[in-house]
């Protein structure tokens, strides 16, 4: 009925989501790729709904990145873009990244 906010605090929040984790590697030799920017987009069945791409994270030297996915819906499109444009951009729907670390392979251009 009533929401509250501590006088000197932030608003309360109502977060619905999961942490997702990826390991990004080269499709050619399996080596980890650093600096890959990962974004997500919720997939809707409705043509009228447009969702923005949300930033998830950037891979570290081991090719690993994790971040918060702000939806509990499962059909999420992820976009993987490497910083040096050495690899092709990959768009793919993944629905289990919140359960375990998902391995993703990028092809060289």
């Amino acid at each position: 009925m009533f929401v509250f906010q501590a006088c000197y605090g932030t608003a309360q929040e109502d977060f619905d989501g999961n942490e997702v984790s990826f390991k990004v590697m080269s499709a050619e030799d399996g080596s980890p790729i650093e600096g890959v920017r990962i974004r997500s987009q919720f997939q809707s069945n409705s043509d009228e709904m447009n969702y923005d791409w949300e930033y998830i994270g950037i891979t570290d030297e081991t090719g690993v990145a994790s971040g918060m996915l702000r939806t509990s819906e499962l059909d999420v499109m992820y976009k993987f873009t490497d910083a040096d444009s050495l690899y092709e951009v990959k768009d793919t729907v993944i629905n289990d990244a919140h359960e375990h670390q998902v391995e993703v392979y990028l092809r060289r251009r």
Binding site: T10, A11, E13, F15, E19, E54, Y55, G57, G67, M68
Partner: peptide, 8 residues
């Protein structure tokens, strides 16, 4: 945001 901050 990537670390899940929801309120600021």
């Amino acid at each position: 945001m990537s670390a899940g901050m929801g309120t600021l």
